[in-house]
Amino acid sequence: MGLLDVFRSNRNKGSASVAKERLQILVAHDRAFRNRPSYLPKLQQEILEVIRKYVEVDLDAVSVNYEQDDEQEFLELNIVLPDAAGRG
């Protein structure tokens, strides 16, 4: 590394390290998504339909989360019901 590079690298502080951080997050996310069972979107859709028979909820009221570690798989359902005033 040359003497002038010291000043240069102050201005341009290691864009490679930013790239690495972004990639680590992105790749981890992509991999988690890749391993999800393929029935999740349909499951989410059907749950939403059942709930909407009884309660008027938004399309994004149901979130389905899937996580996996070495031993277990977790399926997390999160349903946000509207305020009491909105209930039928």
Partner: peptide, 17 residues
């Protein structure tokens, strides 16, 4: 460019993939 911190290094890429 790796030395200047402008490019991902071999180790970076291997660590990710």
């Amino acid at each position: 460019r790796v030395e200047r911190g402008e490019m991902l290094s071999v180790d970076d890429v291997q660590e990710i993939l």
